[in-house]
């Protein structure tokens, strides 16, 4: 899309296709809950949205799947970051954070899977994930003063995924027609909601809903949320920035997830839905399908 198109397209591009990918139409006959495949499937999509001129989000997606005698277990790394700060520092912060996390976990964790004996002597996985996010934080603090970013990373190994999280991007497990938010938003409104001061509906429209109390790049000592969750069998892992979850209702997310033929089609459709609803912010989506055990 050219600059002019973007300027003049604003507001009228109600149905905007994602920036990178042409998508297949929905197959409405797909039955809810039907197994898509017996393999793990991954999709990812991103859009600047309708109202913004720059994309400050970043994503990384990697899946390893093998079979055969003594095969390495399935592994994956999925990262979404949503940058903030003026003078382009937001997009730099999200980009270098995603790169730092991906590099650290690929090198110190995933590549070591191939040296099987060595692997078990490594640090606890949660410590490795925590360190990766803290390293990203240190890079942003030293290289992008004034910049910051959310970051949600899921390191999948076998049947478990270990999630590192800062900010208000989200990881969801979509199973049995339910969307369960796995992460905790580090936002002021979420905190007020947790304390019973705001309802979910009030939080969704609160003028300060963009105010975070924790983000990558906002100080030397960052405390990261790290936890481990079983992979959602016969369901999806969804990681997204608030450009999706703040705009497209959960019921619609679930409908799209289960009515798409492939997670890639679902991601494209989710981005399109966010843009149709006004596209107020950058949109980033990663979706991973896990077959029944």
């Amino acid at each position: 899309m050219t600059f002019l198109q973007r300027i003049f397209g604003r507001g009228q591009s109600a149905v905007q296709s994602p920036d990178r990918i042409e998508t297949a139409p929905l197959d409405p006959s797909t039955i809810e809950g039907a197994a898509l495949s017996d393999r793990i499937l991954v999709g990812a999509s991103q859009s600047t949205g309708v109202e913004r001129a720059h994309n400050e989000d970043a994503l990384f997606s990697l899946i390893g799947s093998s079979s055969g005698e003594a095969a390495v277990p399935d592994f994956g790394l999925f990262v979404v970051a949503d940058g903030m700060g003026g003078h382009r520092s937001g997009e730099v912060a999200s980009a270098i954070s995603v790169r730092a996390v991906a590099q650290r976990l690929a090198k110190d964790t995933l590549l070591r899977l191939f040296e099987s004996d060595d692997f078990l002597d490594g640090q606890p996985l949660q410590d490795q994930v925590r360190k990766a996010l803290q390293e990203a934080n240190n890079s942003v603090v030293s290289r992008v003063p004034g910049g910051g970013t959310t970051l949600t990373a899921a390191l999948m190994l076998g049947n478990q995924m270990t999630i590192g999280h800062v900010g208000d991007s989200r990881a969801y497990a979509l199973t049995n027609g339910q969307a369960k938010v796995l992460t905790r938003d580090h936002s002021l409104v979420k905190r007020l909601e947790e304390l019973g001061q705001l309802t979910e509906a009030e939080a969704a429209t609160h003028p300060q809903r963009n105010v975070l109390y924790k983000a990558i790049g906002q100080g030397a000592n960052l405390e990261v949320d790290v936890f481990t969750h079983p992979v959602p069998r016969n369901g999806f892992l969804l990681i997204c920035s608030d450009g999706l979850w703040g705009v497209v209702p959960e019921a619609e997310i679930l409908r799209i997830a289960w009515s798409s033929e492939h997670p890639q089609a679902a991601c494209d459709e989710l981005v399109r839905a966010a843009n149709s609803a006004g596209g107020p912010d950058n949109i980033t989506v990663i979706m991973v399908y896990f077959p029944p055990a």
Binding site: R52, E56, D82, G83, M84, G85, G90, P145, G146, G148, L188, N210, V211, L212, Y213, K214, A215, Q218, G219, D281, N282
Partner: peptide
């Protein structure tokens, strides 16, 4: 993005 972060004040950078 208009988002502001209300975290540790970072006086030195300014």
């Amino acid at each position: 993005m208009k988002r502001t972060t209300k975290a540790l004040s970072d006086a030195t950078s300014e």
